[in-house]
């Protein structure tokens, strides 16, 4: 019996219909709304944007479309504030991704090459913090990094510094926060690939006379590329729009685009500009996102 025939048409519909309706209502339509409101302008009203659809069927809809424009985009793209917030976000996300790779790869490698009995424990140790409150874990760093915090206390006590270092409210604090919060997302995909690697390949390399570092470089690293790529994309994409970490650790001077969106929305009550920022963010992230989807669907193929 072929796999396709195992489920009748009615069963398929019954299984598919609820999630499709759910996802269209709560993912697709909200996205279209962002796009539409990004073309409106901000007014003092409830809701705070205009034009609104005021009935009138197709003609009314046409009139509405006629009043939409690209003004918010023009403003954002010509304003240095927004541009530099975008560039800062991309730069911080890029550097953080690189740092995560440098820290995460050796950890994933260590986990994959640990004794088999030890591996589930290491895996649990890596996953548990990811479940515990993100907000609380970022907060914990404030006490460690602030001027009279634990790092400065320790360094002063050891006599290594004469005056407290300024770490909190700098970009360095953001990097620490991002690396800390996103580490499992980098380690786990790399670990998955490394753990599944065929060790016979390394033995073959050794038999052919390659020293361990050479076979690591020529066999292990290239074969782990899908995990590395997945890990990098999994941390880069959300990091670009990160709000909590720059807000709590980065101080008022670090402009990241997620924070800019937040303050347009809550501070200025400018929903159309906030929407236009969101649309631009999606456009910037669409390529990394499509790359990630391709990697994921290849992974699914491999499981079949």
């Amino acid at each position: 019996m072929s796999r396709r025939d195992s489920y009748g048409r009615a069963t398929r519909w019954a299984v598919l219909a609820p999630p499709v309706v759910f996802l269209v209502a709560l993912f697709v339509i909200p996205f279209l709304l962002i796009a539409r409101i990004s073309l409106s302008h901000s007014v003092r009203a409830q809701p705070p944007y205009a034009p609104q659809y005021e009935g009138g069927g197709v003609a009314g809809a046409w009139r509405l479309i006629g009043e939409l424009d690209l003004e918010n985009y023009a403003t954002i793209l010509s304003d240095d504030l927004y541009l530099s917030a975008f560039l800062t976000s991309l730069r911080i996300a890029g550097i953080a991704t690189l740092l995560l790779l440098l820290i995460g790869y050796p950890m994933a490698y260590g986990m994959a090459r640990a004794r088999a009995s030890l591996r589930p424990i290491l895996l649990a140790l890596m996953i548990v913090p990811f479940w515990t409150s993100f907000l609380i874990r970022i907060y914990a760093w404030i006490g460690i990094l602030k001027a009279d915090g634990l790092i400065n206390q320790a360094l002063l006590a050891l006599g290594l510094i004469g005056a407290p270092l300024e770490i909190l409210n700098t970009e360095a604090a953001i990097f620490i926060g991002v690396v800390y919060a996103y580490l499992p997302f980098m380690v786990l995909p790399i670990y998955a690939v490394l753990a599944a690697q065929d060790r016979a390949l390394l033995e073959a390399a050794a038999d052919l006379g390659a020293p361990p570092w050479l076979s690591f470089w020529l066999v292990t690293v290239p074969l782990s590329f899908p995990g590395v790529a997945a890990g990098c994309l999994l941390v880069f994409i959300p990091c670009v729009g990160e709000f909590v970490i720059p807000d709590l650790l980065g101080g008022s001077e670090t402009l990241m685009i997620g924070r800019q969106l937040w303050s347009e929305f809550f501070g200025n009550r400018d929903w159309p500009t906030a929407s236009a920022i969101a649309v631009l963010m999606v456009i910037v992230l669409i390529i990394p996102f499509l790359l990630l989807r391709r990697l994921e669907s290849r992974g699914e193929e491999a499981l079949r």
């Binding site: 993912f27 909200p30 996205f31 709304l33 962002i34 994409i237 959300p238 670009v240 729009g241 990160e242 709000f243 997620g258 969106l261 937040w262 929305f265 906030a274 929407s275 969101a278 963010m281 999606v282 992230l285």
Partner: peptide, 8 residues
């Protein structure tokens, strides 16, 4: 990014 999901 959460801000996008949230706004939408």
């Amino acid at each position: 990014p959460e801000v996008i999901t949230a706004l939408s």
